[in-house]
């Protein structure tokens, strides 16, 4: 199946050496930086904001063990969506074209070569899984270090639900969104870390710096607790 689709692509795209391999995996690894805020791939990869991407090729959609998928992606899976070169390529080009209300807050990649390269990189972790390189896990959604005692605070989801009113003027509880990213069902640690990064100004967005700036540690924990378990 993959081979046939790749062949078809080669025929369409011409016959450069790179196209025959379906893309440049080394370049794809660099391009993966724009994914690694939410997705891990490679040895030790675990679900974060998005599911891990090991063995993604030929996997039925919405079936990574333990990851809580959006209702929208589950519906797509019920409709028979399987991740292969063609469907992943379409998903990367425009995530909303495949499933309109997922938490994949990503605009998509217009450039075919970029998508080819990225998929070539991802394929390394599906083709030959017992041979995953011994590299450090790719960067998680953690661009800031938060003290363990702050991460240890147990948030009150009821208070978080009230506070979430400040978030839902922009961020949709359903997890849908373009231009404004999804914040539902994030692992609490990632949520807390991101909010503290805004609070101290490590993350740059002025609205978020302002909103996070007046949230106490307990309030951030409450929001994280609420959004981690919110029903879509």
């Amino acid at each position: 199946m993959i081979v046939r689709l790749l062949l078809a692509l080669v025929l369409l795209a011409g016959t450069t050496a790179q196209a025959e391999q379906g893309g440049d995996a080394a370049r794809g690894e660099e391009l993966f930086n724009q994914c690694s805020g939410c997705h891990q791939v490679g040895q030790g990869a675990v679900d974060r904001i998005g599911p891990h991407l090991n063995f993604i090729f030929d996997r039925a959609a919405a079936t990574a063990d333990g990851y809580r998928y959006s209702a929208s992606l589950k519906r797509a899976a019920d409709g028979g969506l399987v991740w292969n070169y063609e469907t992943l390529d379409a998903f990367l080009e425009n995530p909303r074209a495949i499933a309109s209300r997922t938490r994949m807050s990503f605009r998509g990649i217009d450039d075919q070569q970029d998508r080819d390269d990225l998929l070539a990189y991802l394929r390394k972790f599906s083709d030959d899984p017992q041979n995953i390189p011994e590299s450090a896990p790719t960067a998680a959604a953690v661009d800031h270090t938060v003290a363990p005692e702050i991460l240890a605070i147990v948030g009150d989801p009821a208070y978080g639900e009230y506070l979430s009113g400040e978030c839902t003027s922009c961020h949709q509880t359903s997890g849908a969104g373009e231009g404004i990213p999804s914040i539902t069902r994030w692992p609490a640690d990632d949520f807390v870390t991101a909010m503290h990064a805004y609070k101290v100004g490590v993350r740059a967005h002025p609205v978020m710096q302002m909103m996070a700036g007046r949230l106490s540690d307990e309030e951030i924990a409450a929001l994280a607790a609420y959004f981690e378990q919110v029903e879509e």
Binding site: C170, T173, S174, A176, E178, G179, I180
Partner: peptide, 14 residues
Amino acid sequence: YRESEGWYDGITAD
């Protein structure tokens, strides 16, 4: 601008 479009979707859903 893209953010404002996202906000429009967000607040009208809210």
